[in-house]
Design a binder for these strands. Structure first.
Length: 246
DNA sequence: GCGACAG
DNA sequence: ATCTTGTCGC
């Protein structure tokens, strides 16, 4: 599995090769979850279709949820319930959740322009986190958004930073990349005004996106919550589907 | 052997 | 990821 990850990292493009202008991406406010107001029946413009991907679990089954957003509105949701066979092992997450995610994406009728994954991309021991792995398999532009850091080193302390702040995550001895290579960023999407502090997000390129653009895209996709809208919606949808299966 | 480790 | 009460703050 590790050898395959090195091949995937080799095939991955950590430079911008997007079918749309990343500077044109923006989500004004929180997106309504479903048909409660601004859902359309399918893609209606040439604006990029961005999908959020997340999972929930019941016993040894994975509930993979996909929510497609375009112009700040949900245009489609899809999901799949799959039997799991591989345990969770840090560094090998894609082998456990990759198949289930592909099954859910196959249920989608729209063609995504970008996928936002819950987990790392290039911030990975062999530069092949789940965002990179699935992105390469589908040759789909992708980014990874993780809530905790798997490996690498922040260029500076990350505690108590204001919203909008970010710092590079550099490759250390634990990453198979030249020492100091920027493999992603710590990005503070949200912060409290006083007292309590919120941890930053750890964002990294999946495939066909650079580290800087990944940070900018996540920044543009956040709308008042810690997680970017596509991810937050997929998170909620996964819980919704899970509830129906138990 | 010890420590570290996405979801 | 999942199991869960109470609690702080707008």
């Amino acid at each position: 599995m590790e050898a395959l990850q090195r091949e995937i990292a080799d095939a991955a493009a950590f430079a911008d090769d997007l079918p749309f202008d990343p500077d044109a991406v923006a989500v004004d406010g929180p997106v309504e979850a479903d048909a409660s107001g601004n859902e359309r029946l399918g893609p209606s413009s040439d604006a990029p279709v961005i999908v959020g991907v997340d999972q929930a679990f019941l016993d040894e089954r994975a509930v993979s949820a996909i929510v497609a957003v375009q112009d700040g509105a949900v245009i489609e949701r899809a999901h799949a319930v799959t039997q799991l066979s591989i345990p969770y092992i840090p560094g090998l997450l894609a082998f456990r959740e990759g198949g289930p995610i592909l099954a859910a994406i196959e249920e989608l009728s729209v063609e995504p322009d970008l996928a936002v994954f819950d987990g790392s991309g290039r911030i990975h021991f062999r530069q092949a986190g789940i965002a990179t792995h699935v992105g390469v398999v589908l040759d789909l532009p992708s980014v990874g958004v993780a809530k905790t850091l798997l490996c690498g080193e922040p260029a500076e302390p990350v505690d108590g930073r204001p919203a909008g702040w970010s710092t590079p995550i550099e490759a250390g001895p634990d990453v198979e990349a030249p020492e100091g290579t920027t493999i992603g960023h710590a990005y503070q999407s949200r912060q409290w005004d006083r007292s309590q502090s919120i941890n930053p997000l750890y964002v990294s390129p999946g495939h066909r996106v650079s580290a800087a653009t990944t940070r900018d895209l996540v920044d543009a996709l956040c709308a008042g919550y810690k997680l970017p809208e596509p991810t937050r919606l997929a998170d909620r949808y996964a819980d919704e589907v899970k509830a129906e299966y138990e």
